[in-house]
Simulated assay, not measured.
Amino acid sequence: MAEADIIKAITEVLKADGNVAPLAEGRVFGGELPEGEAQFMPRNAMVIQPSGGVSLAAGSFLNHDTQRIDLFSYGATPFEAEALRRLCRRALVNVRRRIVGGCLMHWIEPAGGFFAGRDPDAAWPRAFQSYQVFHALEEI
């Protein structure tokens, strides 16, 4: 059986959300911004990256785990980047026992507060928040 792709599932959740999708205009990416996107930045876009953290399922024999993710939202202005982050938060915390792209997600919760500032390399306006996702490891 194939392993579930939690990053892909989260990008699909955000692309399908009726509030996030119009503002992001389809620019929701897993891992990093695609190479061709940089020439058009800064503009509304999101990047979902896996990050470290303690597994809440450690020591169990569950075929489930938790994954911490970092969500970076970009905008033409700091206000736009932060507005996009807030919409993403609402979309993510509303996920409850949902199958998306073959991945069963039980819940997504904030893993701390948010931060707004500028990308350290390109100085694009950016907002950031981490989340913890409890999900099945095998594709459904």
Rank of each mutant, 00 (worst) to 15 (best):
E37C: 12
Q39P: 01
Q39C: 02
F40L: 09
F40Q: 15
M41P: 11
P42M: 05
P42L: 05
P42S: 00
P42I: 09
R43V: 08
R43D: 01
N44V: 07
N44L: 06
A45S: 15
A45T: 15
M46D: 11
M46F: 09
V47C: 05
I48Q: 03
I48C: 00
I48N: 07
I48E: 03
Q49M: 09
Q49Y: 10
Q49A: 13
Q49V: 11
Q49P: 09
Q49N: 15
P50I: 03
S51Y: 03
G52M: 05
G52D: 10
G53I: 01
G53H: 01
G53N: 03
S55K: 09
S55Y: 08
L56S: 07
A57W: 08
A57V: 11
A58F: 14
A58L: 12
G59V: 12
G59R: 12
G59I: 09
S60Q: 07
F61V: 07
L62E: 14
L62G: 13
L62D: 15
N63T: 04
N63V: 02
H64N: 10
D65R: 10
T66W: 05
T66G: 04
Q67L: 06
Q67N: 02
R68G: 04
I69C: 08
I69H: 00
I69F: 08
D70G: 07
L71E: 08
F72A: 01
G75E: 08
G75F: 05
A76S: 15
A76M: 13
A76Y: 14
A76V: 08
T77D: 08
T77Q: 02
P78S: 08
P78R: 11
F79N: 08
F79R: 12
F79Y: 15
E80F: 01
E80S: 04
A81D: 07
E82N: 14
A83E: 02
L84M: 10
R85M: 06
R85P: 07
R86P: 10
R86V: 13
R86S: 10
L87G: 08
C88D: 13
C88N: 14
R89K: 09
R89L: 01
R89F: 05
R89P: 04
R89I: 03
R89G: 00
R89T: 06
R90C: 05
R90K: 15
R90P: 06
R90S: 14
L92K: 00
L92T: 06
L92F: 09
L92R: 02
V93T: 11
V93I: 13
V93Q: 05
V95K: 11
V95F: 02
R96N: 12
R97K: 13
R97L: 05
R97Y: 00
R97E: 11
R97D: 13
R98E: 14
R98F: 08
R98W: 12
I99Q: 01
V100D: 07
V100C: 06
V100T: 11
G101Q: 01
